[in-house]
Design a protein around this nucleic acid. Structure first.
Length: 277
DNA sequence: ACACGCTCCTGAACGC
DNA sequence: TGCGTTCAGGAGCGTG
């Protein structure tokens, strides 16, 4: 389940190998994932050179100078670099891009996505800034615009619960279900609280924990970047120590009370009823 | 404008 | 063993 830290890790990993690489061929094996995959992918991507790879919200942007690949990993997406000699297309490998690295090695860039919630589309460089997919995105957590004051403004007069609020990508991007649970635990805030009920002190604390948690998770992912022939972000997950997510009925790491699981907005929430109020 | 539930999809886990 | 059911969730969309 890639969230912002995993996508950041994937982008860094891909960038390590692929900057300056030239695309030999590109093929799609499905007409659509969450949205249509562009037709004639090969003619659109052939001979392009990878200029830069960046993250925007949870999107991966691969800049090919005049055209940009916009990819999203959805729930179950993986973007990996694979050896040509040993490569066999596997189930749910939807996009296969053959490329030659700057050092002369030939590799495949493969998008695999069993649940097909991902996205693979193209945009011209001119249109990217005002692309439909980005038109409703909220604040980037690491941008200057995101501050405790900005979070305060988001929470003001907002009656919905704080967990759904920080997960709402039209308000703040990059905080998915897992990190929402972790951030609220670390901030000591009950996930069912109305956003508007948070005190300034709580907002400052939550703001700090969102930044810290995401940064820690990126660092955990980064520590596994050495072997980045498999740029999938998964290994970063295993390095990050979740305190409440997925820990139903296990003891709270702070107080020992049982971690509870409830369903909010159709999503599982894990929390400690004693530490979070 | 906002809140909320439904939906896309597949595989894993579980129950009978 | 095997079949059916439930659950996981990012984010757009429709509804109230």
């Amino acid at each position: 389940m890639p969230e912002l830290p995993e996508v950041e890790t994937v982008c860094r990993g891909l960038a390590q190998s692929l900057l300056g690489a030239k695309i030999f061929s590109a093929e799609a094996f499905a007409p659509k994932l969450r949205i249509e995959i562009p037709q004639n992918l090969n003619s659109k991507l052939k001979n392009k050179i990878i200029n830069s790879i960046n993250r925007k919200a949870k999107y991966i942007l691969i800049d090919l100078e005049d055209v940009v690949i916009i990819a999203h990993l959805g729930m179950s997406g993986r973007m990996t670099i694979q050896e040509q000699e040993s490569f066999v297309r596997k189930k749910h490998d939807h996009i296969v891009i053959e490329l030659k690295l700057k050092n002369g090695e030939e590799k495949y860039l493969v998008l695999n996505d069993p649940r097909r919630f991902g996205i693979f589309t193209l945009s011209s460089v001119e249109d990217i800034a005002k692309h439909k997919l980005f038109s409703k995105l909220g604040l980037e957590p690491f941008s200057e615009e995101f501050s405790w004051q900005a979070l305060k403004k988001i929470c003001e007069k907002r009656t919905k619960n704080i967990k759904a609020t920080i997960m709402d990508s039209s308000l703040i991007v990059g905080v998915g279900n897992i990190y929402a649970c972790e951030c609220l635990f670390r901030a000591g805030i009950h996930p069912e609280r109305a956003a508007e009920s948070l005190t300034v002190k709580e907002i400052k604390k939550l703001y700090g924990e969102i930044i810290k948690t995401l940064k820690e998770a990126i660092a955990a992912g980064g520590s596994t970047l050495k072997d980045y022939s498999k740029a999938n972000g998964e290994s970063g997950y295993f390095q990050f120590n979740f305190k409440v997510y997925g820990k139903e009925a296990q003891p709270c790491p702070t107080c020992g009370a049982k971690i509870l699981r409830i369903v909010q907005n159709n999503r599982s929430t894990f929390y400690c009823n004693k530490c979070q109020s």
